[in-house]
Design a protein around this nucleic acid. Structure first.
Lengths: 214, 214
DNA sequence: TCGGCTCTTGACCATTTGATCAAGAAATAA
DNA sequence: TTATTTCTTGATCAAATGGTCAAGAGCCGA
């Protein structure tokens, strides 16, 4: 019976669909309340399933969390991966910042989930940080250094510059409550994009004419 | 008996000392594990007290949290308060950034406690955000606008510039695990300070000569 | 239609955890 | 010393919560 062999791998329509529903619900709840602050019941309720039913798909709460985190990480890396040494530096960095701002506005939960994980010591993603992420940052820091060496941008500490881009763009997802409270209104995506790009990139531009005081 | 009247206000030596010990322990634990992730037992253990004893000083877990948060907020505001319109803009902003970086290195727990609170919707400090913080940011945004109007710095979106300073500097406390993992070592305070200052302020300087490519 | 596999759930369990309380120990004022 | 107030704690409770299980319902291929 071939059914036996396929059992472990093959996922039925229902499996596929329910796992997706659960992961979507879990992202919402985990990002809002943190790992410990989230109950399995909450996720089950949001997913429209009974608790034992949910635990039929993911045996432990932690398994759900890990699954959501894995889904998130890949998407998180994407925009940086395409930073291209052959492109025009300011255009490349502008695109990267733009995509990160878009991401903060479109998927704030993913950003918050990630932020919360790191804030609490990154117990589940140490390997990701020290492996793929470290490698990618080193690669892209080299790209930026190349641009500097070619005289295309002003000198800057490459890894710290990457950290700054992350910090500023993700701020609009992770600290959105604070931003909205201080501004007195929800920030506008395009306005944020423009402001952030200017703040982060203006200092890099070479041959730029700055108006002079007096 | 005057003792009766004073009872509610007066705090004995023991009261004073134990409250301080509890708040210090609570800051450590809350910042590491979040509100829900922290147990009263953990705080009591770290403070060297029995759980009922701890609850003699703070009747509820939430009371401890609120007390720690209040202690933290004031310190958080301090560096921004002294931003002076009469000072030299770049020097003033450099000092502000420097103090924020110092704060991230010296008191990362306070920053993380604050970050965690906001990340989860700021349920306990809405009033602080919409009141004192909003007012202060508006005041200091005006200071920056004045500098721009006087032609002392390049134009920039003031509130978003303040957000950027917060984001970048606090990143080294809130995301320190990520920073260390990606760099492969602990970042050096002075190096961070220099890099961050350059990234954030170079674009503001007026009459600056940037070397030109080729 | 039938047999087996997948999916679903009500009931239940063990542990954790915030909080209480009564009673004793220690400090303090008379 | 003595009386009173403050401080401390072992024992205990009720609720919340992660996880189990057996039994039933539903789906699907032969």
């Amino acid at each position: 019976m071939p059914k036996q062999e396929a059992k472990a791998l093959q996922k039925s329509r229902i499996q596929h669909q329910n796992r997706a529903v659960i992961l979507a619900a879990a992202l919402e709840v985990f990002s809002a309340y943190g790992y410990r602050g989230t109950t399995v019941d909450q996720i089950a309720a949001k997913a429209g399933l009974s608790k034992p039913n949910l635990l039929y798909y993911f045996r432990r709460k932690e398994d759900i969390y890990v699954a959501v985190m894995e889904e998130t990480l890949d998407e998180w890396l994407k925009p940086l991966r395409v930073l291209d040494v052959k492109g025009e530096p300011i255009a490349e960095l502008t695109r990267y910042i733009s995509e990160k701002v878009d991401s903060s506005f479109a998927h704030p939960q993913a950003s918050r989930l990630f932020a919360n994980e790191i804030l609490h010591g990154a117990p589940h993603i140490q390997k990701f940080l020290k492996g793929p992420l470290k490698a990618l940052v080193e690669e892209k820091a080299t790209v930026i250094r190349q641009w500097m060496a070619d005289g295309k941008i002003a000198p800057v500490d490459s890894p710290h510059f990457i950290f700054s881009i992350w910090a500023v763009t993700q701020h609009y997802a992770d600290f959105s409550v604070q931003v909205a409270a201080v501004l007195g209104e929800e920030p506008k995506r395009e306005r944020v994009k423009q402001a952030v790009t200017e703040i982060l990139l203006r200092g890099l531009q070479v041959g730029r004419t700055v108006f002079h005081a007096e």
